[in-house]
Nucleic acid binder design. Structure first.
Lengths: 230, 230
DNA sequence: CCAAAAGTGTTAACAGTACACCCATGC
DNA sequence: GCATGGGTGTACTGTTAACACTTTTGG
């Protein structure tokens, strides 16, 4: 229970946090970064990384919401903003979602280029790891609801925002790599030929640029052309 | 300046409000419900309707965010939820957006079936009226930014969510009325024949239902069939 | 009859789909 | 050679877009 002093004026205030849905493309599909809670409530349960927004009421009113999200992301993954698709999802504020007191969470989602990141355990986290989206069990608080909303948004946004697929792929990528990301996100197999036709339009529109280099062959098969997003 | 007592524990809390972007279809196009502020800050300036979320830290933690938005909507327009497309947009929380202290606003948008509503002036509003979206001047706080975001969302959501157009049209409507709404939202003229073909698919899919009645002719021209959304 | 609004039909262009085929590389 | 992944071509289909046309009403 968060103990809150009575306020001197009319309305009480909630605590405001950011919760991060950090998603990367792993071997078997999409993976979600979770922390194991080291403190109550829900000690020992997996949860989304996050933390309270730093605010004040005087001249400097504290950090922006986006800045708080960027700070949490940096603390957990060490990633800087420029590599990451970081967007606000929406606020979750159902009464009772946190037993300590009224907490309103601004959910963000971050799409990062790979899951091979140094994951740091924050102060209140006993452990941190990447978990396949299908293997996410029952999380702390209302975090399952937040993840479900984020995944639905992801599947929707990939349709009209090329930055989504761009953020889940390495800086230099092949058409095959991008195709596999789209296959995972859309949940449907993409015909290679038809995908290439869509890709050709993206090239014409200047959305992607050919690098003129080729991927050094890792196994059998013809080496692929490399591209980057503009 | 909101005077805030020091908190007994680590982090300070922001005030949390809901701001309502209430949009209706008027004669000349989309109209936005604005109130004239009767209190400082920004006294006398037009602003979005809104108010603080009622929260507590004990067993009953107060009202849900959606409930706060529905309450504000009811207070301003007298409309109940079932007639209205009421959806959260996102949180706006830039430091300095409210000179009184740190305030985080959860923006909602509400699409209502018509602009001929009894608009009530709330406690801190000197006046309230519908303003054409093109005629919205400089608003209080960061409300221009919120409106811009809402309009962009509106134009995007009308593409894939039929409830958007449905909410801006009367309960019983003609194909022509729906077509004019889509024309305003998309900003492009809709060919009547092609629009009818899309509408025919909506009928097949059971999204709209023919009422079997006709609009009593208001002027010259053939009377139109009436429909309703399912 | 005429203007205005509703409603129908026809055609060409475009985008999406399915599927067959060729190319370069490691083993 | 052959399996594997990259890359190309073609025919079919459904959707969209443009535009000409007919129908029903008020004046």
């Amino acid at each position: 229970m968060i103990t809150t002093p009575r306020h001197a004026y009319a309305h009480a205030r909630p605590a405001v946090a950011v919760d991060m849905v950090i998603i990367a493309m792993g071997e078997g599909g999409l993976e979600l970064l979770l922390i194991k809670r080291g403190e109550p409530p829900h000690r020992g349960r997996w949860a989304l990384p996050g933390g309270f927004v730093r605010v004040r009421d005087d001249g400097d009113q504290g950090e922006d919401l986006d800045a708080a999200a960027a700070r949490e992301l940096r603390e957990e993954t060490g990633l800087a903003l420029r590599d990451v698709y970081l967007q606000q999802l929406r606020a979750f504020g159902r009464p009772g979602r946190d037993p300590r007191g009224r907490v309103i969470s601004i959910a963000y989602f971050a799409l990062v280029p790979g899951d091979r990141l140094v994951v740091r355990s924050g102060s209140d986290a006993a452990d941190a790891r990447w978990v396949g989206l299908e293997r996410v069990g029952r999380l702390a608080f209302d975090h399952n609801e937040i993840v479900a909303f984020a995944v639905a948004e992801l599947e929707r946004r990939v349709q009209y925002d090329p930055r989504v697929a761009a953020s889940l792929v390495p800086a230099a990528f092949t058409k095959g790599e991008l195709r596999r990301v789209v296959e995972v996100l859309s949940g449907a197999a993409q015909d290679a030929s038809n995908f290439n036709k869509r890709f050709a339009r993206m090239l014409e529109d200047g959305l992607v640029v050919a690098l003129g280099r080729q991927r050094t062959a890792a196994g059998p098969g013809r080496p692929a052309e490399l591209f980057r997003f503009a």
